[in-house]
Design a protein around this nucleic acid. Structure first.
Length: 481
DNA sequence: TGAAATGTTGGGGCG
DNA sequence: ACGCCCCAACATTTC
């Protein structure tokens, strides 16, 4: 305990103690630190968190609060517009500085500028630090000093000679003011579902918080990294890192991930290929953030303006069938149900399910984006927007529009033994492999044997693939010049 | 980080 | 033996 005036450590998308430059600098100031988290939703013009990420947030904050208490500090929770909450806290505590990590959402830059200006007038310094990205968007640009619009040159510029600094370790102790300001009770924020409690599948699958993030990284680097290049595309195999929600909430930094993978690879040459592939995935995240930073309308409007005239269809029944996992295409339905149950969907299946919504159903990508935003525990504005636009063909360096996934072939190729589909679409699990991804091709005997009544126990396809493909190509003709 | 249509090639059946 | 056709298998192009 000290008597000097305190500083505020404002936690944002950096719910961690390790490798946190803002926290490190606040402690180095030698002033007592007030750790603060502000629930700032319902602010117009912003994307407020969806149900699944609220669940994650609640648990991540609980974990962060416990980690702070173990170091002699306590997390202060406040609710309201961040500007007002910070102003109130400064007047209550006479704090002389705010330390925080930078955010990259379209509204964040203006908010940070405004806070800087507002508090400078009162002699309170606003100190902003990096940490959520490997490199800041301003630092990765073309020779002409333009932002990259194509991934491969972006990757080259990002990774060329790049060695992230060694991650900072977590502080052992954090000194706080003699009396910490009042805090909301986390439960009063009602971030967790009650009636009904739909979070059972989330609890089974995830361990939010910094310790969970570190454990996940270690598990990945010592396990799936070796076969990552091939197995990451197999949804029936635990071949991916599953780090995305931890990264989204800043429980771990991409630098720590990069560091862990490259060190493991240096010690074991067999990991070379998996490591390279993993680093490129981290770089896709960077690319998405750079795009959002430079094109703030990315979540709402097509990056490629010609898509504004695309003849989308409105069909609430089709949208609902897609959301519920009742399209009649097993690989799509499996993905949508995995999402609903666990707050996560395997990346390969995200591409297939998104392509189906956009190209087979001709439903605007923004509708899919909104659904993912609400249901994903890893909901991340930059990744979500950039990825949906990538699939739609309207994004930067996007898949060409006519790259239309065939959900049957994709299923057979990436879920050949049907492990994924049988897990998430149990009502057709009894079908043999050769028709599992196209149940309508099964014979009467096979259907009866598997106890399936098509159209009753499992839906007939919402649209026929060949016809839907032809229709999508015709729609594209309408905007092609 | 596709799929389908179209083109090419070469082996084998057969008159 | 030879040409012809069929059609897989693979390659290229088109969407």
């Amino acid at each position: 305990m000290t008597r000097s005036t305190p500083v505020i450590l404002w936690f944002r998308n950096d719910l961690r103690l390790a490798d946190n430059k803002a926290l490190q600098s606040a402690i180095s100031s030698r002033a007592p630190v007030i750790p603060l988290y502000v629930l700032d939703h319902n602010t117009p013009g912003r994307w407020s968190r969806g149900g699944a990420s609220n669940w994650w947030l609640a648990h991540s904050l609980t974990s962060l609060a416990a980690d702070l208490e173990a170091r002699g500090a306590r997390l202060v929770l406040r609710r309201g517009p961040a500007e007002d909450v910070l102003a109130e806290l400064i007047s209550q505590t006479k704090a002389t500085a705010i330390y925080c990590s930078r955010c990259y959402e379209p509204w964040a830059a203006e908010q940070e500028r405004a806070l800087h200006a507002r508090f400078a007038a009162d002699g309170v310094s606003f100190k902003r630090f990096a940490g959520h990205l490997l490199r800041e968007p301003e630092d990765v640009r073309t020779k002409a000093n333009d932002p990259f619009k194509v991934y491969t040159p972006f990757w080259r510029a990002l990774s060329q000679g790049f060695v992230p600094a060694d991650p900072l370790s977590a502080p052992r102790k954090i000194s706080v003011p003699e009396s910490l300001p009042a805090s909301d009770d986390l439960s009063s924020w009602r971030l967790l579902p009650t009636k009904p409690d739909w979070a059972g599948g989330l609890r089974e699958n995830w361990r939010p918080g910094e310790a969970g993030a570190r454990a996940r990284l270690k598990t990945f680097v010592t396990g799936a990294l070796a076969t990552y290049a091939d197995n990451r595309n197999r949804p029936g195999i635990a071949g991916t890192s599953r780090l995305s929600p931890h990264l989204a909430f800043g429980e771990i930094t991409p630098a720590a991930c990069w560091h862990a993978a490259t060190h493991a690879s240096a010690a074991n040459r067999g990991l070379d290929k998996g490591c390279e592939t993993f680093l490129k995935e981290l770089a896709w995240r960077e690319f998405s953030y750079a795009l959002l930073h430079n094109w703030p309308t990315l979540p709402e409007a097509p990056f490629n303006a010609s898509f504004a005239a695309f003849p989308w269809l409105v069909n609430k029944d089709h949208l609902k069938a897609w959301q519920r996992g009742l399209t009649g295409y097993p690989i799509v339905d499996a993905g949508m149900r995995e999402l609903w149950h666990t707050g996560y969907m395997h990346n390969r299946v995200r591409m297939i399910a998104a392509s189906f919504l956009i190209k087979h159903l001709l439903i605007p990508w923004q509708d899919g984006e909104a659904w993912f935003w609400d249901t994903l525990v890893d909901a991340d504005l930059a990744n979500n927007a950039a990825s949906w636009q990538w699939v739609a063909g309207s994004g930067a360096d996007a898949a060409p529009y006519f790259r239309i996934f065939n959900p049957i072939l994709q299923g057979r190729k990436f879920d050949p033994d049907g492990a994924y589909v049988r897990k998430w679409v149990p009502e057709i699990a009894g079908l043999p492999d050769n028709v599992l991804h196209a149940p309508w091709e099964a014979g009467e005997h096979e259907l009866r044997h598997a106890n399936i009544m098509l159209g009753r126990t499992y839906p007939m396809p919402l649209v026929e693939h060949g016809a839907a493909r032809a229709r999508a190509l015709r729609a594209y003709e309408a905007i092609k010049r």
